[in-house]
Design a protein around this nucleic acid. Structure first.
Lengths: 298, 298
DNA sequence: CATATTCTTTGACTTTAGTCAAAGGAACCT
DNA sequence: AGGTTCCTTTGACTAAAGTCAAAGAATATG
């Protein structure tokens, strides 16, 4: 991979500096009213789970010390913002949820944040606003993509199975005829010499996968390329594909094939854009209605 | 002006949240080594002024309490990072500047920040990197523009004169024949019924100006439209122009004219893009080589 | 020249943010 | 049933961040 130019690094940092000074600071100080930042952040995080969250969950989400969190929770309770209860199934866990007053408070803070954002945008004309929003969306998309890593994992790994389960559920909802999990590759088909399995992680969370397995000598098959709904439209599928192709080449499988379902039109478009060409049926797979092939060059 | 759509506000906040979580947090914690954040920030701010700054200046720039700053300065001095001296002309002021060791430290922190930025960019392909940098540049440009306000000020106001002085110095450097300050409008020509003066402010600092004065009944003349070098390429000149035109219309001067120097080619392009058309000479102004006119419609 | 103002330093606080360890109750494991 | 693990609470800290007011020195102002 090419080195990063110093000019790009400088531009990146220039934006970071300006942005944190302009927006970052404002947001935090302004929002919390007279509540300390830690409490305000906690309140917001609790609001994310309307049905209530365990302290344990909050602790790992916000990376807080147990004692610190316990005290902040108590403080919010004293202010009437939250209610604390023990978990119905596990008396060790404490569940925390907003009271009506807490919900009002969060709503008010959100309103204030909206006003702030709106005030910034008001300084621009309508086309400029759209341009800003578009630029931010692009920047966010690319920042997210930059933070996602594609990693090789064993076909038996829990993350691999979790992705495949989500993949299966996804297809089951999209295929008119549903999807039978029996069609998924078995762990041993994508382990060792038989194949490989890749999982994409965003901040520790699996958000996509893709499998490679041996089809015949010198030829691999790509299966189960899937991206979590939250991580779509980032260009992640291409990254997964690239990782699989690299691995295929490494093994000396210079041709890869795949089949895909008729309803997955975006997938077809992507494969074409990535250099795959449609070929005649090479399987009589239940869910295969389009077949593709690509000759890899390293 | 059109109201801001809630979808745009939501997108704006989405970016803010993501960005501050991803970048904001990292930057601060990582950089400071084992120095407290406040001191690290102070060190960086001092580094911005290689010739030294007064504590007073730092206090207003960073919005710190006098006592707090005094103590932090002492701490940095004890660490050998800065040198404190009294101002040569005013013994009340203390000047602070980096020692060689301080400069090394800042350099090291900068190197670390560069590495951090570079690490993020490394996760992208070369075209994606450029796309991210471009999106950030666009976002920054528009955020800055949104923060700039154009205000009516009296022609005698110090900010008005400061802008005109900078304008004159600027032109003096760019015109082959130099620029004579006697050519500037006199304050009374742009005050009251005779005309108006506008200054653009970015975070309290004047960064541009523009004047309107009566040429003949029903006709105004635009003069001295200028933007500070730091604030160019933001689209600020157009904003100044728009403010002047609005004021002209308000006064019932339905036609505005202006002249401009041959070397200012960007200015000419902008006037054309803003609906001005070139007309025959209406003055025999020393620095006028192109003449423009626009009929205003409200 | 006296008085007001400006700027910095110092002492004496407070609040936030965060850490660590001990302890108690509940659930899990064998 | 007994030990282990898990989760939360509490007490006892520390460091950072920030506030307020008094005091002292220098400068500006009438």
């Amino acid at each position: 991979m090419e080195p990063v130019s110093t000019e790009q690094v400088a531009a990146f940092r220039r934006f970071n500096r300006y942005f944190t000074r302009r927006i970052g600071v404002l947001n935090d100080h302004y929002l919390g009213q007279d509540r300390p930042l830690g409490e305000a952040r906690l309140l917001f995080e609790i609001a994310e789970s309307p049905a209530g969250v365990s302290l344990r969950e909050l602790r790992s989400r916000l990376g807080l010390d147990a004692g610190y969190l316990s005290r902040m929770a108590k403080a919010l309770q004293a202010q009437g913002m939250v209610r604390l209860r023990t978990h119905p199934d596990d008396n060790r866990l404490r569940m925390i949820e907003l009271t009506p007053a807490g919900r009002v408070e969060v709503k008010e803070q959100n309103r204030r944040a909206d006003t702030l954002a709106s005030d910034v945008l008001k300084g621009l004309t309508a086309p400029q606003r759209q341009q800003l929003i578009d630029a931010m969306a692009t920047a966010r998309r690319l920042l997210r993509l930059a933070a996602i890593t594609v990693e090789w994992v064993d076909g038996h790994a829990p993350d691999a199975r979790a992705c495949l389960d989500a993949y299966a559920a996804d297809l089951d909802a999209r295929f008119p005829e549903g999807f039978d999990k029996a069609d998924l590759v078995r762990p041993e088909q994508v382990s060792g010499d038989a194949g490989a399995f890749f999982v994409a992680y965003e901040e520790g969370r699996p958000v996509g996968c893709g499998a490679l397995r041996r089809l015949e000598p010198g030829m691999g098959e790509i299966r189960h390329v899937w991206v979590h709904p939250d991580a779509r439209r980032l260009g992640l599928a291409r990254r997964l594909l690239a990782a699989i192709e690299r691995e295929s080449l490494r093994r000396g499988w210079h041709v890869v094939r795949l089949d895909t379902h008729a309803v997955l039109t975006e997938a077809r478009a992507m494969y074409r854009a990535c250099g795959y060409r449609e070929i005649p049926a090479y399987t009589d797979h239940v869910y295969g209605q389009h077949w593709f092939e690509k000759r890899l060059t390293g």
